[in-house]
Design a protein around this nucleic acid. Structure first.
Length: 796
DNA sequence: GAGTTTGAAACT
DNA sequence: CAGTTTCAAACTC
């Protein structure tokens, strides 16, 4: 209560409390005070305490929390604001219900607006009148539905107590109902007019009536002014409603909006009419519908109130409640949808990540998981931006294949769902700022991040939003993801993902970071900074590392261009057109396990390697040096690649390669992957793997690269795209790459034996990417690819 | 799934 | 540049 926050937010309350009316009310009923106290407490605690989560209405709070959490960090200021508002509203509502004070409060607000001088007795009459107002405001606003109902019902019951008041009120209500289809704006207007409300109110209403759609629902801009009005004049309830409404997904909103906006009145009327006959049911219904908090209030109210007029009251209440209730229900339904929707979106992401995304575009229907919340964060508007992501830039994108899809899917889903709604106006009522803003922000963030990513790196980061961070970890940690990741890795469906625990994914230890891609859901990393959110950090770190070693982010395996193989047949045949950039340093693995980067990359060891006891299936260091071994390697390669030729021990390799291929396949998919050298090599290696390396290992590292590449390019080449990317990368790296590439390119012409068996192998391997069969463009492609490469290291 | 092995990356 | 440490993947059980 005391907290400054409260003051800010709760100004209304303070007013109420201070107001003589409030005091009076309190004095009137002992019960009331208690409730009021409770309310106030909750209020203070809730609203001020901090976040919405704390707060009250389970629906609202929970809803919000879930949302925010999922989407983003609740950090968004807007969110907070909203929450407090909501809290306030709720509290006020409760308070109102409990006490008549609430009305007074409302009244007080109204008074501010320009309350008419009511007659002394008017106390009741006022109530009546006021109620209408409240109703108007609450109910009137489509948003309000839920709360208004409560309020009205409560108020009505209690207020009404003085039966006199009821009559008019009821009459009005009945009239309204009878009027039935009118726009509730009119209804409001009428009420207000009758009340003699001030211009403010009128304006407000007029606004509503005129642009009811806009105001109510959504446009933040509209909402704000509106909001201001509300704050000033209106009850918290309205806010609450608005806030609640805001939460609803746009999609829903569409329907909901109409329902609320256009129909609210009619609905109410109908309800009232119907209900009139069975008010109690309606009441019960309402209770059922209402959140627990509210229920408590209502119950209390009932208990407290009950007057002769109860019946009428009940009726009225029923009507109101019912209408509200219906609306409320609607909202609820909407909310759920929204949540689901978001969830669905999120899920989609996950699913997409795992599988494909594009196809799966989601429907809003899908359910979401906690992780998904992030998706939720994804906002409708961002679609375009998201799509951008897929961009080429960092090979990272490759990762993205999944990520991309994911993004796209999201966008689609949203578009289908929310976005459409947006146009409608609706946006949703949201309390002006509340829900919507957060969403927007989140969207923006996500989009921006993504965009930036895409722009800069071309990488798509899934994380996009804040939420991602949280969710990511969440996801990452989850065994499911791990499994998925493993599966993916194993299958090659998806890209490999890191599992960093201490490096924060900002060192080359991190595969993702090394590949120039952001970590995504499948990653199991901890304290990951390799996310769009931390773009600055990532870039800075990259720079740092690059400053140390310009080639740090270059593909480890340099593939000679496809064409490279100068060495003639041999070279062509040799899968090992590629070489490891720096060479391995294996001592115990004999270069026969993935510990060996050369082996992992599917390339043979070269002179540059310092390995001991090299037995690299793709090419031994010694052998490579020997160039002579070529024949074997070639055969192996061919065999491996074609399999037809199986020979040699290489079979093992083949198997491994196959395994690798999958990964590679995935890799190829995303540009990002390209960056990841290892992945690339594998695929190639798989087919071409074997022996060439022995051959190629050239004396000079550069020579090796070139030579190997020349010789083996074929293998690597298998995947045109990869190669391209890879090659490109090298260029960036100037050091070796340029020479190599250049040399390769020129020499390659000869080397390119696309026709060579290797080439055949090549095509198959890469799967995903697309490797369109025709891809093998040969050297030219490579050159072209070069440009793309830069994307990896934007700076260069 | 936990623990070990391995070698690259990072650090000194 | 070499040696050592740190790290995460790969591997084994």
């Amino acid at each position: 209560m005391d907290t400054p926050e409260r003051n800010q937010i709760g100004t209304p309350l303070s007013k109420f409390e201070d107001s003589p009316v409030f005091n009076y009310i309190n004095s009137l009923s002992p019960i009331k005070p208690v409730k009021s106290l409770n309310i106030t407490q909750t209020f203070s605690s809730l609203s001020f305490a901090t976040l919405p989560s704390v707060f009250t209405s389970p629906h609202v709070s929970s809803h919000r929390e879930s949302r925010f959490l999922r989407r983003h960090n609740s950090s968004d200021p807007s969110k907070r604001e909203s929450s407090p508002e909501i809290e306030n509203k709720v509290c006020t509502n409760e308070g109102v219900v409990i006490d008549s004070a609430h009305l007074y409060n409302n009244r007080g607000e109204l008074n501010e607006i320009g309350e008419t001088s009511v007659e002394p007795q008017s106390g009741h009459s006022k109530f009546v009148i006021e109620l209408p107002r409240t109703l108007k405001y609450d109910c009137g606003s489509p948003d309000c539905d839920s709360t208004p109902c409560d309020i009205t019902a409560d108020c009505a019951s209690e207020l009404i107590d003085p039966s006199t008041a009821l009559v008019p009120y009821v009459q009005e209500a009945s009239e309204r109902c009878s009027s039935g289809g009118e726009a509730h704006a009119n209804f409001q207007g009428a009420c207000q007019i009758g009340l003699k409300k001030e211009g403010n109110v009128c304006d407000w209403e007029s606004l509503i009536s005129d642009a009811a759609d806009l105001l109510i629902f959504n446009s933040p801009g509209c909402t704000e002014p509106f909001k201001g009005l509300i704050e000033n004049s209106l009850e918290p309830a309205t806010r609450f409603c608005t806030s609640v409404v805001a939460q609803f997904p746009e999609n829903d909103m569409i329907d909901g909006n109409r329902m609320h906006v256009v129909d609210p009145v009619s609905v109410e009327h109908h309800n009232t009419e119907d209900l009139s006959t069975q008010p109690r049911e309606a009441c019960q219904m309402t209770e059922m519908e209402m959140p627990q908090d509210r229920l408590a209030n209502t119950n209390s109210n009932k208990g407290v109130v009950r007057n002769p007029t109860e019946i009428k009251d009940n009726e009225v209440e029923a009507c109101m409640a019912f209408s509200c209730k219906s609306v409320f229900n609607l909202h609820r339904g909407i909310r759920r949808r929204c949540l689901d929707f978001e969830m669905a979106g999120a899920r989609r992401k996950n699913l997409d990540d795992g599988s494909n995304c594009s196809s799966s575009i989601s429907q809003s229907d899908e359910k979401i998981t906690a992780n998904d919340t992030q998706l939720g964060s994804v906002k409708p508007g961002s679609d375009s931006t998201r799509r951008i992501l897929p961009g080429i830039g960092l090979h990272l994108n490759a990762l993205a294949a999944t990520s991309k899809d994911y993004v796209i899917i999201k966008s689609e889903s949203f578009s289908s769902g929310r976005q459409p709604s947006l146009p409608n106006t609706t946006a949703s009522i949201h309390s002006p700022t509340d829900s919507q803003e957060p969403l927007d922000k989140s969207l923006i963030l996500a989009s921006s991040e993504r965009d930036t990513d895409g722009a800069e790196n071309g990488v798509l980061l899934e994380d996009g939003s804040q939420a991602p961070a949280i969710s990511e970890e969440f996801n990452q940690n989850s065994p499911k993801k791990k499994r998925r990741r493993l599966e993916n890795a194993g299958e090659g469906d998806s890209c490999k993902r890191c599992n960093c625990k201490k490096s924060k994914c900002l060192k080359l230890y991190c595969e993702c970071f090394a590949a120039g891609v952001y970590c995504i859901e499948p990653c199991s990393c901890q304290d990951c900074f390799n996310k769009p959110i931390h773009e600055d950090t990532v870039l800075a770190t990259r720079k740092q590392i690059e400053s140390r070693n310009p080639l740090a982010f270059a593909p480890k395996v340099i593939r000679s261009s496809d064409s490279v193989p100068e060495f003639g047949d041999e070279s062509n045949k040799t899968p090992a057109s590629a070489r490891h950039k720096r060479g391995c340093n294996c001592k115990k693995s004999s270069c026969t396990k993935k510990y060996c980067e050369c082996y992992q990359g599917g390339v043979g060891c070269s002179i540059s390697c310092r390995c001991e006891g090299c037995k690299n299936a793709f090419g031994k260091k010694d052998g490579s040096a020997l160039t002579g071994t070529e024949a074997e390697p070639e055969e192996d390669e061919t065999e491996a690649s074609e399999k037809s030729m199986v020979d040699k021990p290489l079979q093992k390799i083949e198997i491994q390669n196959n395994e690798e291929q999958n990964p590679s396949s995935t890799l190829p998919i995303t540009p990002l992957q390209a960056s990841r050298v290892p992945l690339i090599p594998l695929p190639l290696s798989s087919k071409s793997k074997p022996p060439r390396s022995s051959f190629f290992t050239m004396p000079s590292s550069s020579g090796l690269y070139t030579g190997q590449k020349l010789g083996k390019p074929n293998i690597l080449r298998s995947q045109p795209r990869f190669e391209k990317h890879i090659q490109v990368v090298p260029k960036n790296q100037e050091d070796e790459m340029p020479e190599i590439l250049r040399g390769d390119s020129s020499p390659n012409t000869t080397g390119i034996k696309t026709s060579s068996p290797n080439s055949k192998r090549i095509s198959p391997p890469h799967c995903n990417f697309g490797s369109s069969p025709g891809r093998r463009t040969g050297r030219k492609l490579i050159l072209q690819s070069i440009p793309s490469f830069p994307s990896l290291t934007p700076r260069h």
